[in-house]
């Protein structure tokens, strides 16, 4: 921390023989730097918020006053039709299953691709050590492209439906997971690999029998975390253009008044699914990583 306070320049150093003044000086200096940073940060936030508000259609305070208008309208309409809610929830269940399926398949395919990419780009494990930078840059690129970009282009080619969203999410997932997987694989113990290669195992056998058993718990835990994220992503992509419950939500929202009971049914389904998956995966991940049965 002292280094941070002084910066890299070798400026006037403290006189260590007079410890009390030296310490006070350091504290003062640190406080000054901290204060400057804080003022800068506050100024940045305030001016940024000002710009964002000026480019927004509605102002902040006006919006705050009518913040509960829309939820109140929606909920009151849904409350009047509360008897229909279970039926509506049942009606949208297939779309919900589609959304969850998109997330699950894309996590699965993404994780498979990611494990190959991760092993190929980890030092000491790579099949072709010279190509590791190539695979790393590939993962960086895949991670950087937001799902929506790929999804919208694929909708143009493949038409609507769940497949564009699935491919888009799987593509992004393999980049994101690949990086995390490779960090785990880097810390794997190499002794089993050496043992296996001494008996003439091929690269695939070395990875399958020597590395995978070591990294499987952490990899599964990361993949589960990604599954949570992907359910949200799949709902959003549906809203922007593809299949699943997001698309139903968009249709109901476009209809507006008169279908707010549908909106509420979809909200509730989505909320319940996200919370349920979060809780389940949280519990399962704890068991995986901490090893408690």
């Amino acid at each position: 921390m002292v280094d941070i306070a002084y910066g890299p320049d070798p400026g006037p150093r403290l006189d260590p023989s007079r410890r009390d003044t030296a310490y006070l000086q350091m504290v003062r200096r640190k406080r000054m730097y901290g204060g400057i940073l804080l003022v800068l940060f506050v100024a940045l936030m305030a001016s940024g918020f000002g710009v964002a508000e000026s480019r927004n259609a509605g102002g902040f305070l006006d919006g705050l006053r009518q913040l509960d208008d829309f939820p109140a309208e929606v909920i009151s309409e849904a409350w009047r039709n509360r008897a229909a809610l279970p039926g509506l929830a049942l009606q949208f269940l297939p779309s919900l299953i589609e959304t969850v399926n998109i997330a699950a398949v894309s996590t699965l395919i993404g994780a498979l691709l990611a494990s190959a990419l991760a092993l190929l780009s980890t030092r000491d494990l790579a099949r072709w050590p010279r190509l590791t930078p190539l695979f790393r840059r590939m993962m960086d690129g895949m991670r950087a492209i937001p799902e929506i970009v790929i999804a919208l282009v694929l909708i143009y080619i493949l038409g609507g439906g769940p497949v564009p969203a699935m491919i888009a999410i799987a593509f992004h997932t393999s980049g994101a997971l690949g990086k995390l997987f490779s960090e785990v694989a880097e810390n794997a113990d190499l002794k089993p690999v050496e043992g296996l290669s001494s008996v003439g195992a091929s690269w695939f056998q070395r990875m399958w029998l020597g590395i995978l058993p070591q990294v499987a718990p952490n990899w599964t835990s990361y993949a589960l975390m990604r599954f949570e994220i992907n359910i949200r992503a799949s709902a959003i992509l549906g809203f922007v253009g593809s299949g699943g419950i997001g698309y139903d939500l968009k249709l109901a929202m476009q209809w507006g008044q008169g279908r707010y009971d549908q909106v509420v049914a979809i909200f509730l389904l989505l909320f319940a699914t996200i919370v349920l998956v979060d809780q389940l995966s949280d519990r399962f991940r704890n068991r995986l990583v901490k090893g408690a049965r």
Partner: peptide, 25 residues
């Protein structure tokens, strides 16, 4: 848990009704 579970999509919809389109929303 509630705020996380409601998800960005739904917050976005609710907020854009109140604040209108734009970066602040």
């Amino acid at each position: 848990d509630f705020v996380r579970g409601v998800d960005a999509l739904i917050w976005t919809i609710i907020l854009s009704r109140a604040f209108g389109p734009g970066p602040m929303t």
